[in-house]
Structures are given as C-alpha cells and as structure tokens.
Design a protein around this nucleic acid. Structure first.
Lengths: 227, 227
DNA sequence: ATATATTTCAAACATACGTTTAAATGAAAT
DNA sequence: ATTTCATTTAAACGTATGTTTGAAATATAT
C-alpha cells in the first residue's frame, strides 16, 4: 500500500496524481474532438505523462473512457436522487409538483456547465452525446445501469405529480424531456449561433427554469387519443 | 457520357449501380457502428465492391459520409417546407395552429423509420446523432446550411401560432423540440427496453402524435419569469 | 541502508486504416 | 474491328493507432 502517494476515492480505490491528471485531460479531449479522434498519444502528451501510462493505470483506452464517464455519472445521479428526496420532504403529502420533480432531474446535469467556464460545457457535451453513442455494449450497460434506479424513482414521482397521464405516456414524456436535456447539453452552442445571440446560455439557472417550464407544460398535455 | 449504365439523380448528376450500392451500405454501417468504427474495407466488402471504389466514386471516406447525409437531409427538409405551406393554405388566416406547424416539422424526419423496417431506424439514429457530432466543420456547414431556411420559416410560423411567447423563448422551445425528436430518432430503442415493452415504437403516426401533443403543450407554457 | 514494491520511461510491435497506383476489364462509339 | 472512355481490380504505400516489453527510476517499508 502506498498510502501517501495516492489519494482516496469514493469507492475506496486509490488515485495517483498522474492517474487523475490523465482522467482530466482525457475527459477534455474526448469532449472536444470525440473519442475515436483522440489518441492516447495526444492524451499522454497533454497530461505530461508517458504513452504507456494509460495502459498501466487503466488497462486500455476503452477502460479509461469508461472511467471518465463513471466519474461524472455517479455524482450526478446521486444528486438527482437527493434532490428528489428533498422535494418530497418539502411537499405536504410527499408528492412534489411536476416542476420540482423535473428540476431535481435536470438541474444536476445542467449544472455541469457552471462548475468551470469552458471545460464544463465540454464535459456536458460529452455526457449528452452518450445517449446516442453507438459504442460497445459495455458502455451502455454502465450508462443505463447507473441510470436505472434514477429512472424508476423519477417515473414514479412523475406519475404522482401528473395523475391524469397514462402510464406509458409518462415514460414517453420523460423520454422527451431527457432528449431536450441531452440536446441542450450536447448542442447548446448551436442555439447561440442560430438565434444570433438572442438565446444566452450563460445563465444556467435560467436555462433550467426554461426547460422545466416547457417540460412541465408538456407533461400536463391531455393524453393523446391513441394511448 | 455513358447514358445507359448510369441512372439520373435529382441534382442532375449520374449514379452508377455500385455508387448507390456503396451509399446504401455505408449509410447502414455508419448508423449501426458509428462512422469512425466503420472501415472502407467493411463497406466495400459488404457492398461486393472493390476497396478502391469509394475513393474512385467519392474521392474520400469523408466525402462519402457527407453524401450519405446529404442524400437524406435534402428531401426531409424539402418535405418539411412543403407540409408547412400546405398547412398555411388550409388555415383560414394563413396561420396554422401549433400542432400543424410542429407536425410539419417532425413528421418527415420520423417517417424515416417507416420507410423500411430496421434500416429506417438505423438511418434515423444516424441523423439524430449528427446534431451533437464533433466532426469536421465541413459537415456542420452542410447540416446547418440545409437547415437554415427550415429553421427560419418554422420559427416564424411558431411565432404566429404562439403569439404570447417571447421571441427568444420561441427559439428555446423549438430547440427543445428538436432535442426530443433527435433523441427519439437516435435512442428510441432504449425506450422500449426501459419501459419493459410498454412503449411501442412501431406505430410511427402515434409517436408523431405524442411528440406533437407534448411539444404543443410545452409551447403554450407561460413565459418563464426570467425572459 | 537495504530490500521491495510501485511507477515511469523509451522503444518496439503488430495491426488496421485511408489512399494511391497502374494494369485489366468492360461497355459505347466511330 | 478499332478506338475511347469509364469502371473495376489487386497490390502496395505510408502512416497512425493501441498495446506490450523490459529496463530505469522512484518511492515505501523493514
């Protein structure tokens, strides 16, 4: 055990300095250029580490990528569940309104942007892209494994918040909200261009408010006749 | 001119048999595995063509990809504009309701799925991913060049259909709709898994109806206080 | 101080890729 | 039949990639 050269991590593992540096750099480059377009040589050079360091610390490029994702995904989903519980406590009957439920889901992901000026956007972009990435099954497992509990808990809360909406329609609409969120995360910058600067992305809280208002109204739509 | 061995195309160019075969196969493999993960060798082998055929007919892999995209994008956007005009004619004052405008935008893209059983889904998946693909600028130009007129015309129609919504809010909400659509296109299959089969993706018209109803209700939300 | 892990390093490896080339093949026109 | 042009083919080229290796360096523990 090298107890002093390594710093503890959430899951009890240890992380050396170069290890976390590799994670940081890889995250940034994956986000900017895409995963395939980012070589290990680019990562290690930027991180000031040796080419072999990635394989030493992570085993493979793919494993590095999975760890990059997992490092962000866990905390976001944990925060989502925490905020949902918080909203339940504040609600009189334990059933928070649609806006609170949706905000608990959306805010933790969209707050990625505000953590750091430019890097945050890139990270958010990367996470948003995961939803439609045709990558190996192992990533999908990781992604949806982490997501499963969140999905079930929020689906349940949404049902209580919108009791008139049919069960399958709840899931459909939740899916639409996730899509709008992922799009905002991964392609939000084009909104700035397309609107000639009219739409400002800097005010994260305002963005969340807009998406919450839009989504809540969508959830309150009457059931479509076919369902 | 080899007038008989080539069949005419919309833009006046000619297309040999292997050329279109390469386009079809490339589209399918790009969609299934991702663009970088699809080699020219895989494409040409599946198409029963020689490895050099892609560079002969298209010049490069990148040019092939651009042509794969352009071949689908043009007709979809043309159909969007056509349906919008049709809706305007049917409206009494030339201002069709939100539902008609949104349906004109969403239906042509989502109908990709119904053209062919499995391939349609893959193509839709590929198109949905374009929005957040960090690929070369040339692709972005192509994509948003084709999209520009559609964006402006639909933004205008949405303003008339939702006169109480602020100008920037119109664009924001249009953006959310695009996100929900792209997500449905690129990740719709996970909806089937997540809902344990409760949500059925086969009925395309029903899917369009659901997304239109959700989006229209979202558009009718009151302006958020910050805007 | 010595021994023992852990980490770093330069170099090489094997491979898969997009692209190019020049000859062979085929069809259309003269 | 001969020429002309478009297409196909097999082979090779150059390069960038992820990974492995074994030695050097560094830190930790006895």
């Amino acid at each position: 055990m090298t107890a002093f050269s390594r710093t503890p991590t959430a899951d009890g593992e240890q992380a050396s300095a170069t290890r976390t540096r590799l994670l940081d750099v890889a995250e940034q480059l994956f986000a900017e250029r895409g995963i395939d377009a980012t070589s290990l040589r680019a990562i290690t050079a930027t991180a000031g580490a040796n080419l072999a360091s990635v394989n030493y610390h992570f085993g493979s490029k793919d494993a590095l990528f999975r760890e990059v994702v997992a490092r962000r995904l866990g905390p976001i989903n944990a925060e989502r569940l925490r905020l949902l519980e918080e909203a339940k406590c504040q609600a009189a009957d334990g059933n928070p309104p649609l806006e609170s439920v949706l905000s608990a889901f959306l805010a933790p992901a969209l707050h990625l942007q505000s953590q750091r000026p430019q890097e945050g956007k890139n990270i958010m972009n990367l996470m948003g892209r995961l939803y439609s990435d045709p990558r190996a099954d192992e990533l999908k497992k990781l992604f949806y494994g982490e997501f499963k509990e969140v999905f079930q808990r929020f689906t349940s809360a949404l049902k209580h918040a919108a009791p008139d909406v049919a069960d399958d329609e709840i899931i459909w609409r939740f899916f639409f909200v996730v899509g709008a969120m992922a799009h905002l995360m991964s392609a939000g910058d084009v909104l700035n261009h397309a609107s000639n600067g009219l739409c400002d992305l800097e005010d994260v809280e305002a963005n969340i408010g807009r998406l919450v208002a839009f989504s809540a109204a969508g959830f309150r739509a009457p059931n479509s006749p076919t369902s």
